[in-house]
Design a protein around this nucleic acid. Structure first.
Lengths: 179, 179
DNA sequence: AACGCAATGTAGCAATTGCTACAAGAGGAA
DNA sequence: TTCCTCTTGTAGCAATTGCTACATTGCGTT
């Protein structure tokens, strides 16, 4: 091969970076190609068509998210469910996490509308996050599996409310719900 | 005026219907115009530009949602928070509600990305839903305001998990959380 | 009747979209 | 060498995008 430096595998990280920065729905071939240092012509060549490119890209991003979680195992366990919950929220506020969260809602929207690949990627990310959360539950939790699911539900609701400017609604609710 | 049958006010319901069916992000002027029985030329004439059209449309949709909630006051109050929660979930499963939910995630995604008008509309809808939920809390609830916020958070998390195929995660979590 | 203005149709434009046809270089296989 | 396949560049095409210029209609005012 002439230039193996530009295969799918080398392209995907750069494409992902561009998508994290500028969004997934509005991404078109030429800007994507420019960000990856190639041409639209080559993107089609490597991925077949744009739909497949998006599918592969989502799968790749889900994989990145997965390995990121693998490396994010905290050294110490939280004492309570509440502390666990707050730690994860705090983690979501990290600067590197913001782009990811914004993209996340785009993935959810695509999944809701049934766009190819979106639901699979979202499912994979949620499954992974759930498994990760189970490992992060308090050591003496009576029901880590169920508790993790409960926290997940609260967590996603809290994130959504935060996005639309209702972080207070969520935090006030948590107090009233005696999490 | 020559034809007052096609003003902003008469246009908006038809535009909203089209957007509920086909989505908001991918909506372009000509299909929108066709659905509303007019031309792209006239949409620009009435709304100035597309961005303003979307802003007005979101505001209108938020208003529709608001009045829909006003008319959805159940005759009897639920006995428990859990029953209240399940009723609302059930309501979200109504066929007419599905299109709305799909659009909702698009609005959330737009709000997260900072697109003009999205956050305002989402904020308005959440505020309204919260107020409505307060009126639907059990009559003997010790803290209706806080409880409503707690239920809202759980509700939105449950909806999101449902969208990505994790409805079981949410329902199992609710059991473990002794809602 | 003359005028003015709101409302609308017709054409079109420059940019962007995903994608393709064609050709060419480059490296390995025969 | 000759061929063949992988990879890439150059041009371009038909469709769609938001938007505009220009002309016309029709109604109310004067």
């Amino acid at each position: 091969m002439a230039n193996p430096a530009l295969s799918r595998e080398t392209l995907l990280p750069k494409l992902a970076a561009h998508v994290l920065e500028h969004g997934l729905g509005g991404a078109s071939l030429r800007p994507l190609a420019k960000a990856a240092g190639t041409s639209d012509r080559m993107l089609i060549y490597h991925f077949g068509n744009k739909e497949q490119l998006v599918i592969d890209l989502l799968e790749y991003i889900a994989g990145v998210y997965s390995t990121a979680l693998d490396m994010a195992i905290g050294p110490d366990r939280p004492k309570t469910r509440q502390e666990c919950f707050e730690r994860i929220l705090e983690q979501g506020r990290q600067p590197g996490m913001q782009n990811f969260l914004v993209l996340w809602w785009e993935i959810v929207a695509g999944a809701a509308r049934g766009v190819a690949g979106y639901r699979e990627a979202a499912d994979q990310m949620m499954t992974k996050q759930l498994a990760w959360l189970e490992t992060q539950m308090p050591a003496d939790d009576p029901d880590p599996a169920g508790g993790a699911r409960f926290l997940m539900t609260l967590l996603e609701g809290t994130l959504m409310l935060g996005v639309v400017g209702h972080e207070r609604t969520a935090s006030d609710g948590l107090v009233a719900g005696q999490l």
